[in-house]
């Protein structure tokens, strides 16, 4: 059924294409974007916002499907089994790579083909306003001066954030206690009540406390400063060689034709450039990565990222 409709769409293509737009018509009428996040979760909100802006550019319908369970493995399996006709994609975050490394799912991250990496989620280091630290450099200097005395918090035990703090430990020799929590809320309480000296997380997670003037940003772990926090120095600027990249992108089943991938990267580039969408994602402090939109770039980025995180998880003794 699906294939016949597909053929029909292909047959009408030469007639319709020149009249409608310069870009070739998208081969399927409805694209399903699958996320492991539950409705209202990070990736879910991200996708629903994105499709509002993608719909007019690509001229097809979009649906978001929440496939929860198995820490992302169920969603990956769903997309890996789909036909590579551009009808289904998975919204990637580092989670799908971590799950593959921590367990042995039937379909791992490498059974999908990365399509595009759209955004980087900047990680920031923060503390409560009562803290004596005003910059990451000062916090690290204090940690160096009192080895083994500082307490640092990350949201989850097998997360990029924890890996980042352990790297900070190695860089500075602070031997700080890195305390993982169960989600950002737990962590925030312990930063606010002074149990922890510093915490690490995404800007969106701490936005409420930041706006209320209860926490202070110490540094951001990106290559360049964030546009909405121009005064916030990066870790590198503060003399600490640490960059953490958390990403959001799309991946599809293997064997998808290059033309479809090219259509996506053009469409995504258009959307990222549109002022309406820019307003949305800059409010979330997301950093657009136009250079990672083409499939080859997304592929090599994902491979490198996975190798890097595999090393880190092995060093922590978490993965084999």
């Amino acid at each position: 059924m699906l294939t016949r409709r597909h053929a029909l769409a292909a047959a009408t293509l030469p007639l319709a294409a020149p009249a409608l737009r310069a870009q070739a018509r998208y081969p399927v009428p409805t694209v399903t974007l699958v996320t492991h996040s539950s409705p209202g979760g990070g990736s879910d909100i991200f996708l629903r916002e994105l499709i509002k802006h993608l719909q007019p550019v690509m001229g097809t319908n979009f649906a978001v499907e929440n496939v929860r369970g198995g820490s992302g493995a169920t969603a990956v399996a769903r997309v890996a089994r789909a036909q590579p006709n551009g009808g289904m994609f998975y919204a990637t975050t580092p989670t799908y790579i971590q799950t593959t490394l921590l367990s042995r799912p039937e379909f791992g991250y490498d059974s999908l083909d990365p399509l595009s990496v759209v955004f980087l989620d900047p990680e920031v280091v923060y503390t409560r306003v009562q803290s004596p630290f005003t910059t990451l450099a000062k916090a690290m200097a204090a940690a160096k001066a009192n080895p083994g005395r500082q307490k640092w918090g990350a949201a989850n035990p097998a997360s990029l954030e924890r890996i980042a703090l352990e790297r900070l430990n190695r860089i500075t020799g602070a031997r700080a206690a890195v305390v993982p929590h169960e989600g950002g809320g737990d962590l925030m309480i312990n930063v606010l009540n002074g149990t922890l000296d510093i915490g690490i997380g995404e800007v969106q997670e701490i936005r409420a406390q930041l706006d209320a003037g209860r926490v202070r940003l110490l540094g951001v772990l990106t290559e360049t400063r964030l546009p909405d926090f121009p005064d916030l120095g990066t870790a590198r600027e503060q003399g600490i060689d640490l960059v953490v990249t958390k990403f959001r992108g799309l991946a599809g089943p293997k064997g998808m034709p290059d033309e479809i991938a090219a259509q996506w990267s053009t469409a995504l580039a258009t959307v990222l450039d549109s002022p309406a969408y820019k307003a949305v994602f800059s409010k979330e402090s997301l950093v657009a990565t136009p250079q990672l939109l083409p499939r080859p770039a997304a592929r090599s980025f994902t491979t490198e990222f996975a190798a890097d995180i595999a090393t880190s998880l092995r060093e922590l003794g978490v993965a084999r």
Partner: peptide, 28 residues
């Protein structure tokens, strides 16, 4: 008051706020 969901249900409600561009927390 803090923007911190204390349970799964509160986390879903937090999602409901976020979808509408509202951030629960001290300034809500």
């Amino acid at each position: 008051s803090l923007g911190i969901p204390g349970s799964n249900s509160a986390a879903i409600l937090l999602g409901g706020f976020m979808v509408h561009g509202l951030t629960p927390g001290p300034l809500l």
